Amino acid sequence: MINQSVNEGKTAAIISHFWIIGLIIAFIMNMSKKNYFSSFYIRQMIGLNALQFLNGWIVYKFLGGTAGWIVGVLLFVLWIISLFGAIKSEEKLVPVVGEQFQNWFKNF
């Protein structure tokens, strides 16, 4: 049963990794029939997109381009880890902040 649920939600989980548009599409796909696996990755990507937005507006502005670039690379690595977890059908938390994303965005 769990494996079937993962297979049903895998497409939306992978789509959620492709920028804001993919996140919106995955959210809409998950609205009619809630899937735990899809919801897990939607929450992860809401958090990563929020961090990327904050990086673009706050880190670049107040700490400079080099700091913003370093944070951007770190966020890209976290995105890759999450994407490979979704492709492998594993619930892989993003290191450091993944557990907080699951708690903060538990209504999604």
Results as ranks from 00 to 15, higher is better:
Ile46Arg: 00
Lys92Thr: 15
Ser16Asp: 04
Phe37Leu: 00
Ser82Phe: 05
Trp69Asn: 11
Val97Ser: 09
Val96Cys: 11
Ile46Ala: 02
Asn7Pro: 08
Lys61Ala: 14
Ala86Trp: 05
His17Pro: 09
Lys88His: 07
Gly9Ile: 05
Ile28Glu: 07
Arg43Thr: 09
Met29Ile: 07
Trp104Asn: 12
Met31Pro: 06
Asn107Asp: 14
Gly68Tyr: 03
His17Met: 08
Ile70His: 01
Phe105Pro: 07
Gln102Lys: 00
Met1Gly: 12
Leu51Ala: 10
Lys61Thr: 15
Phe62Glu: 06
Leu75His: 03
Trp69Ser: 13
Ala50Trp: 10
Val6Ile: 15
Ile15Cys: 02
Gly64Lys: 00
Asn7Arg: 15
Ala26Ile: 04
Pro95Gly: 06
Gln44Ile: 04
Gly22Leu: 00
Phe37Cys: 01
Ser5Arg: 14
Ile25Lys: 01
Phe53Gln: 09
Ser89Gly: 12
Leu54Thr: 12
Met29His: 04
Phe18Ile: 11
Gly22Cys: 03
Glu90Leu: 08
Gln100Leu: 13
Glu99His: 12
Ala13Thr: 00
Trp79Val: 05
Ile25Cys: 03
Ala86Lys: 05
Ile42Leu: 01
Val96Arg: 09
Gly22Asn: 02
Lys106Leu: 06
Ser16Pro: 04
Gly72Phe: 02
Gly72Gln: 02
Phe27Asn: 10
Ile25Ser: 01
Tyr41His: 08
Ala67Leu: 04
Gln4Tyr: 05
Phe40Arg: 11
Trp69Leu: 14
Thr11Tyr: 15
Gly85Tyr: 01
Lys34Met: 05
Ile21Trp: 03
Ile24Tyr: 02
Val59His: 02
Ile58Gln: 03
Gln100Pro: 07
Gly47Met: 00
Trp104Ser: 13
Ile58Arg: 05
Phe53His: 11
Lys10Ser: 08
Gly9Asn: 05
Asn30Trp: 08
Ile2Met: 11
Gln100Lys: 15
Val71Lys: 03
Val73Ala: 13
Asn7Cys: 10
Tyr36Gln: 15
Phe37Ile: 00
Ser32Ala: 13
Ala26Asp: 04
Trp19Thr: 15
Val6Lys: 14
Ser82Leu: 04
Ala67Phe: 02
Ile25Glu: 01
Asn3Pro: 07
Phe108Ser: 13
Ile2Leu: 11
Ile14Glu: 00
Gly22Glu: 02
